[in-house]
Design a protein around this nucleic acid. Structure first.
Length: 491
RNA sequence: CGGGGUGUAGCGCAGUUGGUUAGCGUUCCUGGUUUGGGACCAGGCGGUCGCCGGUUCGAGUCCGGCCACCCCGACCA
């Protein structure tokens, strides 16, 4: 119906772009590669942020804030970290503008050159570990369990709204521990938190796994991730948790006195999810009519639309609608009653479907007579006439059902699009014809992964955490392998 | 940074070998009729044709330069 939306079949990425802009989530800004997150898109982010923040607090973390600008020299401390980010750093070199000599506009004041350039954070490990150094002296100061909600700048070549932009919002947790075991435990704990969030709130099933050497975070010993499958068969990395070992402690000389009175370097983790999750949410669930939002992240749960001919009818309907609204709100739901006379009901139906509001109620003269409402659920587009009596409990059950149905549908999709490949031909064939996750043996070397990537564009998304050991041969080199890993084309 | 493409009203586009006052759809505004799946009629607002220069009696149109954006690659959450 949505006459303005490109269909997924016709052009998946155009569909995505159309959807993001037409559902009013975000738009491109006048700064190349940077997006404006519009109120509706930001409302979804706020829901995500609130849920995650609560989960972080429940696992013992506190929030803090570190500066956006980081002295350039900090980046040269940890070698692999620099290498990972050097190519995408924006650098502040001056601190003053002045009027142009010709009177047209302003120019950079050459006299205001910074002694040391500042880098807009692509991530905050360096500034944070430079700070932690001053906070940590003994094991009694540990652990430090801090999270920050912040913006990040990474100068990307090609950008797409939410999926990859030059600036984006995220949270980054940075923890410091006395022992290796404790840090590793924290790394696992947080990947679990992310997986739980993705599945319980976003209704997106994810594979928890470990990254290959190629895909690992620059500066980490191990990177764990959650990977989700999108409707076009491509994987999207949706969250990462890194075990940083003592790399940053060594780079920033952060030592503590342990119980035995000996100096040791501190163990670290970092973990993050970003506004990219909104991209995952869109691509996992939505259809050709528009967004489909899981109730637990929908900014508005229920929209009520009156259908009337006369003013008298409208006021009678409004009266009933307000009662229903109040009752639903008392159950903690966010309800919008759209009695605006600007658009016809049909237009509103299409509009709220585009915006992905989980439940729509329509009330017309017939309903008034019968004391009913028409209930439409967004995920299946099913419509039912329901008595007003007991409506509130019906709706709250319905929202639960929608949440669950969406998850099941996404899980089913992933199952149907996860394949095993045992030969190189099979492997290539699946990637070319079907997409999805391909479970295959791999010899574990970076060289082989790179070769496979060159020939198929697919990468090792992760080595699943719940993997069963299995003797096999690498799909590419034939060398022995102990377990299957997941390959996919990725965003 | 390579290859391709596009810049004309808020959005989507047309504009012929150079020729009057630059047009169509949509959105928007006004009034009226409508309202159970994207209504209709009438009237109206809205433009430095990406920018700079050149050719010409005359440039959206031809020439030169620049800029921006999009798509495909390399790079990445």
């Amino acid at each position: 119906m949505a006459k303005e939306l490109t269909s997924r079949k016709e052009n998946y990425s155009q569909w995505y772009n159309d959807l993001v802009t037409k559902a009013d989530l975000a738009e491109n800004s006048s700064v190349r590669g940077c997006m404006v997150i519009k109120p509706y898109g930001y409302a979804i982010w706020e829901k995500m942020r609130d849920a995650l923040d609560k989960m972080f607090k429940e696992t013992g973390h506190v929030n803090a804030y570190f500066p956006m600008m980081i002295p350039k020299s900090f980046f040269s401390r940890e070698a692999s970290h620099v290498e990972g980010f050097a190519k995408e750093c924006a650098v502040v070199t001056h601190y003053r503008l002045k009027n142009a000599p010709d009177g047209k506009g302003v120019v950079i004041d050459p006299d205001a050159k910074l002694e040391e350039e500042l880098v807009l954070r692509p991530t905050s490990e360096t500034i944070i570990w430079n700070t932690y150094k001053n906070w940590i002296q003994s094991y009694r100061d540990l652990p430090i369990l801090i999270n920050q909600w912040a913006n990040i700048v990474r100068w990307e070549m090609r950008t797409r709204l939410f999926l990859r932009t030059a600036e984006f919002l995220w949270q980054e947790g940075h923890t410091a521990h006395a022992t290796r075991e404790e840090a590793i435990e924290e790394t696992y704990r947080m990947i679990e938190v992310y997986a739980r969030f993705a599945e319980d709130f976003m209704a997106v099933p994810v594979i928890k796994g470990k990254k290959s050497e190629n895909e690992r975070f620059a500066g980490a010993l191990d990177t764990f991730c959650i990977e989700a499958l999108m409707q076009d068969g491509k994987a999207l990395q949706s969250g990462t948790s890194h075990f940083l070992g003592q790399n940053f402690a060594k780079a920033f000389d952060v030592k503590f006195l342990n119980k035995d009175g000996k100096l040791d370097y501190v163990w670290a983790t970092s973990w993050g999810v970003s506004t990219r999750l909104i991209g995952a949410l869109i691509m996992a669930h939505s259809d050709d009519n528009g967004l489909i939002l899981p109730p637990r992240l929908a900014p508005i749960h229920v929209v009520i639309i009156p259908i009337h001919k006369s003013e008298e009818q409208l006021s009678a309907i409004s009266e009933k609608a307000h009662l229903i609204k109040k009752e639903l709100e008392s159950q903690g739901l966010v309800v919008k009653y759209d009695d605006s006379d600007m658009q016809k009901p049909g237009w509103k139906f299409a509009q709220y479907e585009l915006k992905g509001i989980p439940v729509r109620l329509a009330i017309g003269p017939r309903d008034l007579e019968n004391n009913t409402v028409e209930v439409a659920r967004r995920d299946t587009l099913e419509k039912k006439i329901i008595p007003v009596n007991g409506l509130a409990s019906y709706i709250s059950n319905l929202l639960e059902d929608i949440q669950q149905t969406m998850y099941n549908k996404a899980l089913d999709f992933r199952k149907k699009n996860t394949f095993k490949a045992d030969t190189w031909d099979e492997f290539k064939n699946i990637l070319e014809t079907k997409g999805g996750f391909v479970s295959a043996h791999w010899d574990g070397t970076a060289e082989t992964e790179i070769k496979i990537k060159e020939e198929t564009k697919a990468t090792v998304r992760c080595i699943p955490l719940n993997n069963q050991p299995e003797e096999g041969k690498c799909i590419y080199t034939g060398r022995p392998s102990q377990e299957r890993v997941l390959f996919a084309l990725a965003y």
